[in-house]
Design a protein around this nucleic acid. Structure first.
Lengths: 211, 211, 211, 211
DNA sequence: TATGAATGAGGGTTCATTCAT
DNA sequence: CATGAATGAACCCTCATTCAT
């Protein structure tokens, strides 16, 4: 049982990894299930024991990969000790920008990943990724987000909308800037982007954070 | 000659219109060239006399349709006489929000169009749409944009980046809000969106617009 | 031993019942062994411990179900007491028509059963059903048939052929009439059918039935 | 045009013939479209230009082949001059039996055809075959049937039902007898069969055919 | 005996593209 | 210019059957 279960997990992962590589290399449309299976060293029919179809595996990959990116960003945050250095609204802004910067840098270093996620991400899928971290991972980004808010001591009027707007801004701008340097490379755009993010945060903060 | 040329244009338009209807109805992937040709009342082989392949016609459609949306927005702007009522930075902001609002409303009323454009739009394609208005149309949105700036009398540091950021913000937020009401319906999000747009404009304006 | 044996019989029956339901619902072709097994709550591999393949279980079902239909007809016959009321050739005819009518009514009330049996029945399979009543059932229709003849006191020249002809007539006519009301519904056809059956019986009877 | 059209007809026929051969040899279920196409010397995709799917070609074949069998029977009838020799009810009976005999003999000589038709024939499909003789053939069996009746001078109460019953009787009995000699070979069964057919005809005739 | 994961051949079907007319 | 029949590769998916556990 243990062995069989292990084997199954191994195959599942093999399929996920292969699919990810192909999706990011050739795009989802031009990747066939035959190809995924073959390259994963698995019979074509076996694919269907693990995933319903190509879009099933794609969605699972998006959740999974988004989760990984965020995990890494939070990891880096912890190591940088940002949260401890700053407090209040200022601290929150710095923290958030730090995370955004980490995410953007990851995308800059892995453009295929950016292509894959951007072309297929929707806020709905992303929200799922925030919470359900596909089994293994124990990270819950949503929780991390709210604990971040709490620790800052700031009260935000609509934290959900604030998050949504920032994420949409980051992802849409990253896409064009990182992949096409258009209208400018991402480093040139960062000041504008972070400036806007800061503004969004400020405008959502309830005026007097220390009454 | 005149007759033949007319006929050609007619076929071309027929293909474009049919393709647009099918793309917005069933999606680009699930629309076949056979289908487009047949529904356009044209032989399959003839399609290739006008377009290279499905993606060729798709790109042309995106440019074309984006142009139409902007044209309509500018048209409405003219009829509303906004530009004449307000001046300076304030006027520019109002004008811009007016245009954004028009675009968003158009998308709200035509969700298929939104899906089609959002799923396929990139800044690069959009930029092309701004200038080259596919033959017939005489509108040059870029020109309109700069004349708008000029008339306002405000000097912007990076008008191109400003435009880019605003458009990305609008399009990414519209997508989720209009199509899925997630995290909120578009009417609920408009205040936040317009607020942010205003901020972006302000932060790009060179401090003292009236020296 | 008793327990294991019971369990085996239980699984066998579960497979037979499930297969029957699926065969009559979706047709033999479109029913897969996976489906049968799964719905029977049995592992796929286990199926092969009980039946050779789909057609094996199908044949066994036809025999079984045909037997059930005949059993029920004979049961009803007994309860109606027809045999006691009439004697001689006349009695035989009435008895036979009674049985035919019961069978047809059963089919009318269970069209899926009719489809299944008609599409798969052959005289050869049916003959097997007449005698070997799949284990449990103790009824031997062939025996019942000959005892019916004997009791009537009539001598038939070729009782086997007579039975064959009548059964083929009934089954082929029922099929079209019950399932498609074509060329007429079964009630409209019954007079013609029974009239012909009567004739077949008469023509097989040795002239002077009471010497 | 003429050439292309000819070519199309040729391909169509090639597909029909190949399908017929495969259907009668291996059965409809076990024949694949790949096989039909390949053996017909045509690309697989081309099949779909001519027929919707396997069952489309099957139905067309049944109609076609049934028509051929009947045509041949009527041809033989004409050559035998039966109709001229006999008149009235007697003549009708002899004519009908002659046709039945021709059909049965054809089936006896072509058992594959019998298997194919019997396993797939339904009264509904047959009726279609009676009238619409797939383009080329000019024979309309239904018309022939009614002209036969008319010429005989006999009035039948329900000619449609009479035909239905006789055909069902013939086909179901032929099937078992010709293919399996069960319960008797077809020659042994013919007397019983024809006897019954005669009876059915008689019983449908309006009593006094010569007033 | 029972399981059910794995197989992989083969099914039906679609479709971009070509080319003779 | 226009056609549309023909292609055949490629696709997705199903499923009977096997076999290690």
């Amino acid at each position: 049982m243990g062995k069989a279960e292990e084997n199954k997990q191994h195959k599942r992962l093999s399929l996920l990894n292969t699919a990810f590589e192909l999706f990011t290399t050739k795009g989802v449309n031009k990747t066939s299930i035959s190809e995924i299976s073959e390259q994963a060293g698995i019979a074509k029919g076996t694919f269907y024991l693990y995933f319903k179809d190509k879009y099933d595996i794609r969605n699972k990959l998006i959740s999974h990969q988004s989760g990984l990116v965020l995990s890494k960003a939070l990891e880096e945050l912890k190591q940088a000790g940002i949260e401890e250095k700053y407090t209040g609204l200022e601290g929150f802004k710095r923290t958030f920008i730090f995370i955004a910067d980490s995410v953007i840098n990851q995308f800059t270093q892995n453009k295929a990943l950016l292509t894959f996620i951007s072309k297929n991400l929707s806020w709905a899928i992303f929200k799922k990724a925030l919470t359900s971290n596909t089994a293994d991972d124990s990270l819950d980004f949503r929780e991390a987000y709210y604990s971040l808010i709490e620790r800052s001591g700031v009260h935000f009027k609509e934290p959900e909308i604030m998050l949504f707007m920032i994420i949409e801004l980051i992802s849409s701008i990253s896409y064009s800037a990182i992949l096409y340097n258009d209208p400018l490379d991402i480093d040139g755009l960062k000041p504008y982007l972070y400036n806007t993010i800061n503004y969004i945060i400020e405008s959502h903060a309830d005026t007097e954070e220390k009454p």
